[in-house]
């Protein structure tokens, strides 16, 4: 699945300062993203899953340039993004947002919303832009006369389609989808997921699909990266991830998903104890050790690095590296 990487993230960090009280005595940092490496291939969909506060949205925002990384680089088509003119980036990268109600300016007509990227980049004449908007509206399953209306006249699903039309207006090569279906009703989610899939086939665009809904991620992704407290703990092709999760966190995450089949009740489930630790003060060693059902002594002191395993997946866990080290001897 991996051909030439379109996007490469290395050592990406984002720390937010936290003010303590009125007079800002000691400064502490919220480590939203704390050292991330990822690649996204051309025409590929990379799913990014994790629980709230794990840094997945922050990662997406850094990629499209809405936030500056504290450390590390994002390179797109081989160019370091910190050295690229951000305004030109819009032609290449776009974003689809979670909340269909706040993602469209309520005082702009739908056709103006969709035409905005075209106007910003002076792409074509007014008439050409209008034709393109009509085309885009129909492409996402709306009608061209919908362009004359205002966003408030549309349902959540329709608004999300408008947001998608805006995102593909300039034919970008990467779209960051930040929880694009989690605010929608179940029956509408499927419509939007199918639309995204169809568009990808047609346009060859890559997606970074950020979501906490694991079913949707599985449906749309080629590969999936799992994040926990600002770090990637596992990256694998989706089939491999679901068939054979390497990291105990991935395992428990998958097992926690409620399945729409009552016959699966009473299956062995891993139910994690306790809450997510605060990203301000992450646990020493492996960040997951406070909740890990397979915790060992080494996990509390040494932080495992993301290592490639025999079947080409990546995982950051001492158990995995141990098993991998034994492999050659067995063979």
């Amino acid at each position: 699945m991996m051909n030439e990487p379109l996007l490469e993230i290395s050592g990406l960090k984002k720390y937010y300062p936290k003010k303590d009280g009125l007079f800002q005595g000691k400064k502490s940092w919220i480590k939203a993203v704390d050292g991330m490496d990822l690649t996204i291939g051309k025409g590929e969909t990379l799913g990014l899953v994790g629980e709230s506060g794990c840094g997945k949205s922050t990662t997406g925002r850094m990629i499209v340039g809405l936030e500056d990384p504290t450390e590390g680089t994002v390179s797109f088509k081989g160019n370091d993004l910190s050295r690229v003119d951000k305004r030109e980036l819009g032609k290449q990268m776009q974003m689809i947002f979670q909340d269909p109600f706040s993602s469209l300016n309520p005082r702009m007509k739908v056709s103006d919303v969709i035409a905005e990227p075209l106007r910003l980049h002076k792409d074509g004449s007014r008439a050409e832009q209008q034709r393109r908007v009509d085309e885009l509206l129909e492409r996402v399953g709306l009608r061209s006369e919908h362009g004359r209306r205002y966003p408030s006249e549309f349902s959540g699903g329709q608004r999300q389609r408008i947001g998608i039309a805006r995102a593909i207006a300039l034919s970008p090569s990467l779209i960051v989808c930040d929880e694009p279906v989690s605010a929608l009703d179940v029956s509408i989610q499927a419509q939007v997921l199918n639309l995204l899939k169809d568009l990808q086939k047609e346009l060859g665009v890559s997606y970074l699909f950020i979501a906490h809904g694991i079913q949707a991620v599985k449906y749309i992704s080629d590969r999936i990266a799992v994040m926990y407290l600002g770090k990637v703990v596992e990256v694998a092709s989706k089939d491999e991830l679901f068939r054979n999760p390497k990291h105990p966190y991935t395992e428990s995450l998958l097992s926690a998903v409620p399945r729409p089949d009552p016959k699966l009740r009473g299956r062995d489930r891993i139910i994690l104890k306790g809450d997510l630790p605060s990203p301000e003060n992450p646990p020493s060693g492996c960040r997951f050790h406070t909740r890990c059902p397979k915790v060992m002594d080494v996990c509390k002191q040494v932080e495992p690095s993301l290592q490639v395993t025999r079947d080409g997946t990546y995982a950051a866990c001492h158990l995995v590296s141990e098993a991998e080290m034994k492999q050659p001897q067995e063979a």
């Binding site: 349902s155 699903g157 329709q158 179940v186 029956s187 509408i188 989610q189 499927a190 419509q191 997921l193 199918n194 899939k197 694991i214 079913q215 949707a216 599985k218 449906y219 089939d239 679901f242 068939r243 998958l254 998903v257 399945r259 729409p260």
Partner: peptide, 19 residues
């Protein structure tokens, strides 16, 4: 219309049309 976690198939989920 809910994608399942079982299986490896890439088959399309059938969405309910309309609103």
């Amino acid at each position: 219309s809910v994608p399942t976690l079982e299986g490896e198939s890439d088959e399309r989920i059938s969405a309910i049309r309309g609103t």
